[in-house]
Design a protein around this nucleic acid. Sequence first.
DNA 1: GCGCTGATTATGTATAGACATAGAACGTCC
DNA 2: GGACGTTCTATGTCTATACATAATCAGCGC
Lengths: 250, 250
Amino acid sequence: MATRAAKSINGKAAPQALYQRIRADLEDKILSGRWPPGHRIPFEHELVETYQCSRMTVNKVLSGLAAAGIIERKRRVGSFVAKPVVQSAVLHIPDIQAEIAKRGEAYNYELLTRKRRKATKDDLDRLGMEQGCDVLVLSCRHIAKGRPFAYEERLINLDMVPPAVEIDFARVPPGTWLLGHVPWSEAEHQITATLADDDARQALALRKPAACLVVERRTWRKRKVITSVRVTYPNDLYRLTARFTPAGRG
Amino acid sequence: MATRAAKSINGKAAPQALYQRIRADLEDKILSGRWPPGHRIPFEHELVETYQCSRMTVNKVLSGLAAAGIIERKRRVGSFVAKPVVQSAVLHIPDIQAEIAKRGEAYNYELLTRKRRKATKDDLDRLGMEQGCDVLVLSCRHIAKGRPFAYEERLINLDMVPPAVEIDFARVPPGTWLLGHVPWSEAEHQITATLADDDARQALALRKPAACLVVERRTWRKRKVITSVRVTYPNDLYRLTARFTPAGRG
DNA sequence: GCGCTGATTATGTATAGACATAGAACGTCC
DNA sequence: GGACGTTCTATGTCTATACATAATCAGCGC
C-alpha cells in the first residue's frame, strides 16, 4: 500500500499523498453538494475498504476535515457533513435578517425589483466573469424598526444555482436563502464609503446625501461565481465588525 | 506511554490528550515571544526525547502547527517559527506604507502629534480596558502622490510594548513598526462610514464634509490589548478588500 | 413502562517500525 | 573554481496494532 505514484481515485489528477487524494475526493463530494449537510460519511472501516488503506490514514483525513469544520464527528455515532456556517467567525457580514433579529429589533423586508435575463456586459463585470450566463437580478431593502436599514442589489448566477429561479424572493430574502441552501468555498468583500446614489437614496428614504457604507461581496464555489451583492447601509445604522485570530491560534 | 490522565508538562492545566498538551506547550513558547519568528524548533527526535513520546505524536503536533501557519517546515532543514503575517490573507488592512508602495505610488508620512501619558478614561475606553496603564498617543497622516491618503489616531499600551517609547515615530509609521516587532494573537476591526470630523478634515485637507471610511482596529496578545488605532480614509481613495475561504477549504 | 447495567461500536489517541524524498553538505573530477 | 554526483538526515507518509472512551442499545429486574 505504500507505493506512491499515480493510482487515480475516480479519475482526477492525483495531488500526491494518499491521504491528500482521499481528502480531495471527500471534499469534492461535500462541496459539490452530492453529500449535503447532515449526510452521513461512511464509517472509517468502510473508507478503509474503499481506498484500501489503513485506518490511521482515513482517520487523519477525517480529523482534518473535522478541524476545518467541514464535517462533524461523534463518538459511537459517526461523521456527518457539517451545516454550512451561517456566519463565519472571521468576517461578520452575515444574513441581514438574522443580524437584525439578534439585536431584537423588528425586521421587515421588501423585494423591490426582480428580473431574469442573459447577463449584460455590466452584469458580467460585477460577477467578475468572462463567459455569459443567465442571471437573476434582484433589488430589495431591509427594514429594522420601521426604518430602512439596508439597500441590497444582487445578481445570482443561474447557471450555478438553477433552483433560485423557483424561489419566491418576495417572501424570503435572497441572502438568507442562499446561505442556507448553497454551499460556497470562497468569498470576497470590498468595502467602501460613498454618498448614496439615487437608487439607494430612494430605497433608504434619505432626504439629502449621506455617507453610506457599501459592502460588495462575491461568492464562489469551485472558482465559479455564485452571486454578487452590493449592500448599502446608511452611515449611522451599521457597523461592520471583523474579529479574528491568525489561522488556528485561537 | 499510553497512560492518559495528568502528567503535567511545565505545570499548567492539562487539556487532555498528550498531543494537545504538547501543542499548547509549543504554542505558548511561540506566542509568548520566547521563541521569536525564525527561531528553530527542536527536531522531531529531540521533542520525542523531551516529551517522551513517539515521533508520530510530535509529528502530528508539528504538522498541525504548520497547517495553522504558526511554524514553517522544510525537509532536511528543520522547523521554524513563522514570520508574523504582515497581511493576513483574511482581512486585508495592512501596513499602509506597504500598501501604497505596492501600488507603486510615492509615499510620504508625517507624525502630527505624540504624547505619553497615563491613560485617561477615554483612552481606556478606546483600548477596551478597565485597568489603567501608560499609553503613547500618536496621530499622523499618510500621503500618497502628494495627497493626504489617511489620517491615523493611535494608542499604544506601553505596559505591553515598553520599547515603543524609544522609537522615533517621526521616521517610521507606528503601524509598520508594530507589525514588524510585536507579535499578536487576535485583532478586531470595526468599520463605519462617516463624515470626517474636524481633526480628520484638517489632516486630510478636505474642504467640505466628505464620506470617509473609518477603520478601528484593536490588537491583542494573550487577551491584553496592544494597540488601538482609528484610520480615516477619504471616500474616494480607499477600498478595503477581504477575501477568504471557510477554514481550511483552500 | 421504567431505570439500571453491561455489551457493542465508532471514534480518539498513541505506538513502533518502515520506506520515501527533498535538499544540504561534501567530495570529486575537470 | 565550478559543475557534477553521493551521502546523509529531517521531514513526509503509511501501516498494523493497541487500548481508551463515549454513546447507544439491548436486556434485565422491578
